[in-house]
Simulated assay, not measured.
Amino acid sequence: MTDPTDLAGALAALHAEAFDAPWSASAFADLLSQPGVLLEARADGFVLIRLAADEAEILTLAVRPPARRTGLGSRLVEAVSRRAVGMGATRLFLEVAEDNAAARALYGRLGFEPAGRRPRYYARPDGPAVDALLLVLILPASLPTA
């Protein structure tokens, strides 16, 4: 999948399997064209990060539902963390919905720590908006292997 349009479409399709509010192919194409954006991908999942100076941010981590709880999410974060360290990053940030227990558990196992909160950040069609928790991982960290 070397064609950027094909790649963006494939990422959007996988993202749609993983999230209720998926990103479009054009959003992925735009992100992939930006400097400092790195993609780590496997057949059943991917993680997209952005690097700026000595900081990196996970923009999205998507794993197909049938591949969840197999260690794929951990392997993706570990791989992209190593790449970020190699490019000079000392911290990796992310936002996660406060009600996303599975993602919070994954990030906790990987060593992410609370760094802040964005009140009512994630809209929910069937209820009130949910806070985003800001998490940080200090790099290089001794990441557990999946």
Rank of each mutant, 00 (worst) to 15 (best):
A79S: 13
A53Y: 03
P66W: 07
P35E: 11
A43F: 09
D54C: 05
E57G: 08
R75D: 15
G45L: 04
S74L: 06
P66L: 12
E57Y: 11
D44Y: 02
T70L: 12
A56R: 13
M87C: 11
A62I: 07
I49F: 06
T70E: 07
A79N: 10
A41Q: 15
E40R: 10
A62H: 07
E40L: 01
F46G: 00
V47G: 14
P35M: 01
E78L: 10
A56I: 11
G73D: 09
L31S: 03
A29S: 14
E95I: 07
T70I: 03
V85T: 12
L38K: 10
E40M: 05
L31Q: 06
A79G: 12
V47A: 14
V47Y: 09
A89K: 01
A79H: 02
L39H: 03
A53V: 15
G88A: 05
A62T: 09
Q34A: 07
V63M: 11
R83A: 12
A52E: 04
T60W: 10
G71I: 11
G36F: 04
L59C: 05
A84G: 12
A43S: 13
L61M: 09
V47P: 13
A79C: 03
R91E: 14
I49S: 03
V85S: 09
S74T: 14
V63N: 08
R83F: 00
P65S: 10
I58M: 14
T60F: 11
R42G: 01
T60R: 14
P66F: 05
T90V: 08
R42D: 12
F93C: 00
V37S: 03
V85Y: 11
L38D: 04
I58E: 10
A43T: 15
E55F: 02
D54H: 00
R64H: 00
E95H: 05
R64Q: 10
V85N: 04
A89L: 08
R83K: 11
I49W: 06
F46H: 06
R75L: 12
R64T: 15
L31Y: 08
M87A: 14
T70V: 07
G73S: 07
E40S: 13
D30S: 15
T70G: 11
G73E: 05
I58K: 03
A67K: 00
D44R: 01
L94Q: 06
L72I: 12
V77M: 09
E57H: 10
L51S: 02
V63P: 00
V85R: 12
E95S: 11
A67S: 15
G88H: 04
A84T: 13
R50W: 08
E57A: 14
R69Y: 03
S81K: 07
D54L: 06
L48Y: 01
P66K: 10
L48F: 06
E40G: 01
A52I: 11
G86L: 07
L59V: 05
